[in-house]
Design a protein around this nucleic acid. Structure first.
Length: 904
RNA sequence: GGUCGAUUAGCUCAGUUGGUUAGAGCGCUCGCCUCACAUGCGAGAGGUCCGGGGUUCGAGUCCCUGAUCGACCACCA
């Protein structure tokens, strides 16, 4: 034996060196010139400052198992690593650092601040890569890209210019979501609605002098008024109209009349617009064009002006009445309500639950704000993306997510891409400073002067949305806009694995970009993982303290345990619940499984020794039942696992491989083969067993390698290798089904044998027969086949069941335990003097009674006219056979009971 | 307000197109340190398949309806 292996596998000692070996030998590298069919996965680039969480753990496990599997299948498999500069997120982190030093980004200035962020990224940015290594990710590291690196920045600029030239990028003056904390615009997707318990205030707006309408309520001073409802009273300071529905009889006479806008001294008109729902509230809506997107549209239609009453950080600006200036928006809200109340203009206050948008990065309540921003016109890009889905060029797994995708694209809105940040891709737009010229220049290369008038240029200060670089990821990482070899070989990519939360942010946009700039979808299949939650169904989060650190899991249980758990823990697209308080329950089984593999390896090493591996083909003639059985099972397992992987059913794949290895190979084959491997049954039998053991274990390791790469590799590298096998499972062939090994007769016979042994074990347990004791056994096989099996497998059977003798014949007059198998095989274990006769008689009576019940049910079923006439003939036939078999069993049991009754 | 998921053993999950006795792991009970493995081996107990209707010879599976939990979408101020 080459080395003595410890009885327990240590992931801590094995994983890191194995990974280093793979990486150093270049096994993760994909060659654009190999000519083999490519399989490519684009990694969802983690934020450069991110630390690995369970979501990454799940996501990257799935990607890695797909890549490893395809690589073993002989595909040129490429998994492109990378990270995302994550504009707002990263800038926020660095700003927080500065805040601790008592500084702001303005203290540093733009250039110094950006340099500071770069420093931070260089210092801490690599972390996530090492963490991906720790879980075994077979990423092609030299190809790693960063969304802000030179090549990707060129792609971003190229895309911006092209879209601008096609008039698909434009500058717009409109209401956008604004984060008053981050001080930047957000896209619609970045404003996350959250159900919030708020209030609905009903405010009275008195009519200006002279105006009136029948039926209006009146203030104590006799003036009539309108009631408007709002959830944000402070915005009334910027109201410029009140709108009613044009067909609303109640207010028809008021349209065009003026109202006194309280607290402001301004007068505003009543306007008519179809947007108003007469059924809701009073049927009159206050219009604040600068602070509400709908109001803005009403204003555009009706021609009323917009008054912005807030500063960027959402305090009240000079446009607000003096009493409110400088107040934060929520202070202003209270002050406005109080002022209305004191003036007798507060009609009522209601509790109101509604969805309030929050900044997806800092959680601050977003303020709708009127401003100039850059937008991408999405409808023209969305159409081809919809078509690609509908004609099946992109498929979603599970399919239902296609509907989500479709719905979003059908209702697509323009994408606000400018951000008032410093960290990111600077918008490639320059404005001529010459007052007469005012040219706007959009260019691939930085211009020195205005091409029209030669005047000085000022670059747009804003940067682009982070997703404006990520949506190009599947081709920008391959060198686009250059027509590189990589691009030719690896675009389109094959499969995207991602969370459901970024279908809109990323997936849909990548498909649009791929079609627009490459004329082809970026990938064929999209696999969406569920979310990892705690055992109470809550999202894992830092603030709740309910998270599980995957690196902690790797340290304690090993990467394979982590991978096995997440790969098999939930079906496709389903959320997975893991208890952070009981990691042992969650990850113990995975660790135990790895250990089981390790020990099977130790056993194989012990019995196979250093001898050359014997090929199954060389011992074909001396293969015994269990050999033929396990090889048949291996072939079928290979088919099942492959099919499950093809259908993105990772749970099925993992469990099928698990069952083959543990439930069949370890539990049954190894046990049955022991006497042969120890040489008790002669040389030929031993050689056949050795060849089969090596083959079956080899197959099991290969099938499990995508999910548990470390332990399988650790074992495989130590096993005797067949001639021509590579040094690593990383590059070994994926097991294919072997029809020539499939042997249904052997499988059927083994099933019987397992049932016989199971029954014997049951009898031993039931009657408390001492573990070491050997008892005689009589078996009445149902078929000649089984008789043959029992004869040829006598030794194995004895070992497994610890039966002293196996003989065939009648048990006339003997007293003992019996078992009737489903096949009809009857086992009879003489137990006189060892057992409690009364107990046994009771057991038999119970069984007989149950059988009577089953027979009754069966007779009733077959007596049912409609069943017999309408069920398929073969089903009816089966039911008849079942009844016959029950009756037969009843006879035997009755006879046995009678025999027992006669003995004292 | 819409759309879509989920509800199966104490826990975490499977259950393909409706068809023998609904499965696995963990936990629990009992017996075993059997020379690969006690992170193990063997044998068990444990399930009104969320409730109510319906279709069918037959429903965990299909249809309707209700409940609970969750996700996504939505301009009702």
């Amino acid at each position: 034996m080459a080395e003595a292996l410890p009885p327990q596998y240590s992931p801590q000692e094995n994983e890191a060196p194995l990974y280093r070996g793979w990486e150093e030998q270049g096994f993760f590298h994909a060659d654009a010139h190999s000519g083999r069919p490519a399989y490519v996965i684009p990694i969802p680039p983690p934020n450069v400052t991110a630390r690995l969480h369970m979501g990454h753990g799940l996501n990257n496990t799935v990607q890695d198992l797909l890549v490893r599997w395809r690589r073993m299948q002989g595909r040129e498999a490429l998994w492109i690593p990378g990270s995302d500069h994550a504009g707002i997120a990263t800038q926020n982190v660095v700003e927080r650092q500065l805040a601790k030093e008592g500084k702001t980004r303005d203290d540093l200035g733009r250039e110094a601040f950006v340099e500071r962020v770069w420093e931070f990224v260089r210092d801490t940015g690599g972390q996530i890569y090492d963490q991906l290594r720790a879980i075994g990710s077979s990423l092609d590291w030299p190809r790693a890209r960063f969304t802000l690196d030179e090549g990707l920045s060129r792609a971003v600029r190229e895309v911006f210019v092209r879209l601008y030239e096609k008039e698909l990028i434009y500058r717009g003056h409109r209401i956008i979501h604004w984060c008053p904390r981050c001080l930047t615009a957000l896209s619609d997707e970045e404003a996350e609605p959250e159900e919030t318990q708020g209030k609905l205030w009903h405010l009275r707006y008195p009519l200006a002098d002279g105006a009136d309408a029948p039926g209006l309520p009146r203030l104590p001073d006799g003036r009539p008024y309108l009631v408007v409802a709002t959830t944000r009273p402070e915005t009334m300071l910027g109201d410029t109209a009140v709108a009613v529905h044009p067909d609303d009889e109640r207010y028809r006479a008021l349209v065009g009349k003026m109202l006194d806008l309280p607290l402001t001294g301004r007068q505003i008109p009543v306007v008519a617009d179809g947007y108003v729902d007469p059924e809701f509230g009073s049927g009159a809506v206050k219009i604040t064009p600068a602070h509400d997107p709908n109001d803005f549209e009403v204003a555009q239609r009706t021609g009323v002006p917009a008054i912005d009453v807030m500063t960027p950080d959402a305090t009240m600006s000079d446009a607000a009445p003096e009493a409110f200036r400088g107040l934060d928006r929520f202070e202003a809200r209270r002050a406005v309500v109080q002022a209305f109340d004191e003036a007798g203009l507060l009609e009522k206050t209601e509790e109101h639950t509604h969805a309030v948008p929050h900044c997806y990065r800092c959680g601050t309540i977003v303020e709708p704000r009127l401003s100039d921003q850059w937008f991408v016109r999405m409808a023209p890009l969305a159409a081809p993306a919809l078509e690609a889905y509908r004609d099946g060029r992109v498929r979603f797994h599970p399919e239902r997510f296609g509907k989500t995708y479709e719905h979003w694209l059908e209702n697509i809105r323009d994408w606000c891409i400018s951000r008032q940040l410093w960290w990111g891709h600077r918008i490639p737009v320059w404005y001529c400073e010459s007052a007469e010229c005012r040219e706007t220049v959009v260019a691939r290369e930085d211009p020195d002067a205005c091409p029209t008038c030669g005047g000085a240029l000022r670059q747009d200060p804003d940067v682009l949305d982070t997703w404006f670089s990520s949506w190009l990821w599947p081709f920008s990482t391959l060198g686009w806009p250059e027509e590189t070899e990589d691009l030719k070989a690896f675009y389109p990519n094959s499969t995207l694995v991602s969370g459901q939360d970024i279908i809109f942010f990323w997936i849909a946009r990548m498909i649009m970009a791929g079609l627009e700039f490459r004329g082809e979808v970026p990938f064929r299949d999209v696999y969406l993982t569920g979310m990892v939650r705690d055992h109470l169904g809550r999202k894992m989060s830092k603030s709740l303290g309910n998270g599980i650190d995957p690196l902690d899991v790797v340290e304690r249980f090993g990467a394979d345990a982590l991978r096995y758990t997440v790969a098999t823990g939930a079906g496709a697209g389903m959320d997975q619940y893991l208890n952070y308080q009981d990691l042992e329950q969650a990850f113990g089984p995975g660790r135990n499984f790895a250990n089981k593999l390790w020990n099977a390896g130790r056993f194989a090493l012990m019995t196979l020794g250093d001898d050359d591996r014997i090929a199954v083909e060389d011992v074909r003639g001396s293969l015994e039942l269990t050999d033929r059985w396990i090889l048949s099972r291996l072939s079928k397992a290979a088919g099942e696992v492959t099919q499950a992987l093809e259908r993105f059913r990772f749970q099925d794949a993992g469990l099928a491989a698990y069952e083959f290895f543990w439930g069949e190979l370890a539990d049954w084959y190894l046990e049955a083969a022991k006497p042969r491997l120890y040489g008790d049954l002669g040389e030929a039998s031993a050689r056949a067993a050795k060849a089969t053991l090596a083959e079956a274990l080899d197959g099991a390791l290969r099938l499990l390698h995508p999910i548990m790469p470390f332990i399988t590799e650790a074992v495989w590298q130590r096993l005797p290798r067949a001639a021509g096998d590579p040094p690593s499972l990383m590059v070994a062939r994926w097991p294919e089904p072997r029809p020539d090994w499939e042997d249904d007769a052997a499988e059927a016979a083994m099933e019987e044998l397992r049932a016989v042994i199971g029954a014997v074990r049951n009898i031993r347990q039931e009657y408390g027969i001492q573990p070491g004791a050997r008892v005689p056994l009589w078996a009445h096989p149902a078929s000649d086949d089984l008789r043959a099996v029992l004869e040829t497998s006598e030794r194995a059977l004895q070992d497994l069941a610890r039966v002293g003798e196996l003989s065939f014949g009648q048990a006339n007059g003997e007293v003992g335990a019996s078992a009737v198998l489903r096949s009809g095989t009857e086992l009879f274990v003489p137990l006189a003097g060892v057992i409690d006769l009364e107990k046994e008689r009771g057991r038999l009576r119970g069984e007989l009674q149950r059988l009577e019940g089953q027979i009754g049910g069966q007779e009733k079923k077959l007596g049912n006219e409609s069943f017999v006439s309408r069920a398929p003939a073969e089903v009816v036939e089966k039911e008849r056979e079942k009844l016959a078999s029950f009756r037969e069993q009843r006879e035997k049991l009755a006879a046995k009971l009678a025999a027992l009754e006669g003995v004292s």
